[in-house]
Design a protein around this nucleic acid. Structure first.
Length: 261
DNA sequence: GCCATAGTACCGATTACTTCA
DNA sequence: CTTGAAGTAATCGGTACTATG
């Protein structure tokens, strides 16, 4: 999938800006069957230059070039080991590839590690607005000494992370909600069983007398227990019986649903 | 106005790499 | 020292939208 192991010749005009030519050309040399080939544009800060040479030549910046700027570092498997000591930005001091320098060689892609300073600034900007206008992107890239494309990618990944986190939180919430509903369901089933067993055991005579007086369901105001129709709909649906489907909506719950609170 | 095409931005999925336990 | 998991920069393929001829 990746365009690694490209050791071809490169003949190009100017530096290819990964951002401006966008994703269509991003796989560069190997990407022949890209859906679109785009017209190259040049940033203000990109100097046109002709390049002709083997593509795996790696340039490293001089020490003077690295010093003092919040430049991120690239590293590859063969290259400089970085260790992140607590509170220390080793990345700034070690291998310092000029940012904006295209990794046009065919070597395995090098992974940038943003410095804490850069991450903090990006984070601050993300808090303000989760997406960037082209101008903001350019400015931020200039400020951080990164390519606009890198800023863009960072924001994309950051949005993805935010979304993933949100999804996870929603998922947790739904799980809890589900658990509560299950509990409530169990409780209601139990309650129903109790009611059924009470109904099945013949009540004492005094209770029968009381029941005879209670012929109207307080919630739906229709007669229950086979009592006389009160002039309204006498359909079976309005009659409460053990065998019929429980009418939860009209049943006066003692305990309101506690789920999803 | 409709259509085809190019350019661009964004997204989801994935890869590749780093760091750390 | 090795290894697996987690984090994340970068890539890829796709969609949607806009501008232009």
């Amino acid at each position: 999938m990746d365009s690694d192991c490209n050791t071809g010749l490169l003949l190009g005009l100017g530096r290819v800006s990964g951002d401006d030519i966008n994703d269509s050309v991003r796989s560069g040399v190997a990407g022949v069957n890209k859906k679109k080939l785009q017209v190259l544009k040049f940033d203000d800060d990109i100097l046109p230059s002709l390049t002709l040479g083997l593509s795996f030549v790696v340039e490293t910046a001089t020490e003077e070039g690295c010093s003092g700027s919040p430049v991120s570092s690239f590293s590859n498997s063969s290259g400089f080991k970085r260790e992140r000591a607590a509170g220390e930005d080793v990345a700034e001091t070690e291998e310092c590839m000029k940012v904006g320098e295209e990794d046009e060689d065919g070597s395995p892609r090098k992974k940038l590690r943003l410095t804490k300073q850069q991450s903090a600034i990006l984070e601050d900007n993300f808090k303000e607005h989760s997406s960037l206008s082209p101008k903001q992107k350019q400015d931020l890239a200039r400020q951080l000494n990164l390519r606009p494309r890198q800023v863009e990618v960072w924001f994309q990944n950051r949005r993805a992370r935010t979304k993933l986190k949100q999804t996870e939180m929603d998922c947790e919430l739904l799980k809890k909600c589900c658990e509560k509903l299950k509990e409530e369901n169990t409780r209601l089933q139990k309650e129903l069983q109790e009611i059924k067993s009470l109904k099945l055991t013949p009540p004492p005579f005094c209770m029968q007398l009381q029941a005879a007086t209670l012929t109207v369901c307080p919630s739906c105001e229709s007669s229950i227990c086979g009592g006389g129709s009160s002039g309204g709909d006498a359909s079976p649906a309005n009659n409460f019986s053990i065998g019929s489907k429980p009418q939860f909506l009209k049943f006066p719950f003692n305990h309101p649903s506690a789920a999803c609170n």
